[in-house]
């Protein structure tokens, strides 16, 4: 069947634009970036097309390694937090009435009408020393001195979680929505308590949604440099920030390309690992 289908010329024509688009805007730039990462940096922003491994060697320097470690830490922290908040959110949202679902969906979408950059500036107003959060905490008498939240690691985590949570919520929601609840009833009928039935049936069957959510949050959280810039001050340097710095101020495009390639490989590795783990769990019935 499949072979026959492939032979149809009409189908090829319909997917042709897709191929052209992918080659022009995904495969092409990717190959260019990989090539660039092996090129030599000239004076200014010139690139000399001479093969070298120096760019990759340079990544081994402590200051750059540090940024990788920090990026991963931040990405894992935010992704875990997003999972813990997003899963229940998406789950209960899927259990709302049709009207409730629509309303909730609207509430989630509204922030997207504003640029995420501007929304990050909003967080400055909330988190700064004389900001909304400190004001409330002090009025409640919980703290005497304003907390220094802005320009710290937690502030960046807050920004990341805030920016990426909707993606987790929506992908969990869509998989919980598709759940066949009679399976949960069957588990309960066979002797499982509420919690047991959730872990044995619901969680396992909605794992693909959770996985999609993780991928949709983990990858961006490695690269959203402007959040670290705005909410982290100069203290938090992520790979994204280093790359941005090398492209703009440092004017070292080949090195930036090498950083990007390594980041891409590491991210893919993480996702592969995560998939592997969840998939095994899926088949073997652990948990």
């Amino acid at each position: 069947m499949e072979k026959k289908r492939k032979k149809k010329p009409g189908l090829f024509l319909t997917v042709l634009p897709l191929y052209v688009f992918t080659i022009c805007f995904v495969v092409g730039p990717l190959l260019y970036m990989i090539a660039l990462s092996f090129a030599t940096n000239g004076n200014g922003s010139d690139t000399i097309w001479r093969f070298t491994l120096d760019n990759y060697k340079k990544i081994g320097e402590p200051v750059y390694l540090e940024s990788f470690v920090q990026s991963f830490q931040l990405a894992i922290t935010s992704t875990v937090l997003i999972m813990l908040m997003g899963y229940p959110f998406g789950y209960f949202m899927a259990k709302l009435s049709e009207k409730g679902k629509k309303r909730m969906m609207l509430l989630i979408m509204i922030p997207f009408w504003t640029s995420s950059l501007i929304r990050m500036y909003g967080w400055i107003i909330i988190l700064q020393a004389k900001g909304v959060l400190n004001g409330i905490l002090m009025k409640l008498g919980l703290i005497q001195e304003p907390l220094k939240i802005l320009y710290s690691y937690p502030a960046v985590v807050v920004g990341m979680v805030y920016a990426l949570l909707p993606f987790m919520i929506l992908s969990v929601y869509s998989s919980v929505e598709k759940m066949d609840w009679s399976l949960v009833e069957a588990a309960r009928d066979l002797g499982a308590g509420r919690a047991r039935a959730f872990f044995d049936v619901t969680l396992k069957l909605t794992l693909p949604g959770l996985l999609t959510g993780v991928i949709l949050t983990f990858i961006p959280s490695m690269g959203l440099f402007f959040i670290a810039d705005i909410l982290g001050g100069n203290k938090i340097v992520l790979v994204g920030n280093v790359i941005q710095d090398q492209v703009t101020r440092g004017s070292n495009w080949p090195f930036a390309a090498a950083l990007a390639v390594v980041l891409m490989i590491l991210t893919s590795l993480m996702i592969w690992l995560y998939r592997k783990i969840t998939h095994v769990k899926d088949l073997e019935g652990f948990f």
Partner: peptide
């Protein structure tokens, strides 16, 4: 115990 109308076998 119940035998459900759509069987409700655990697909995983």
């Amino acid at each position: 115990n119940t035998v459900f109308q759509n069987y409700a076998l655990f697909p995983h």
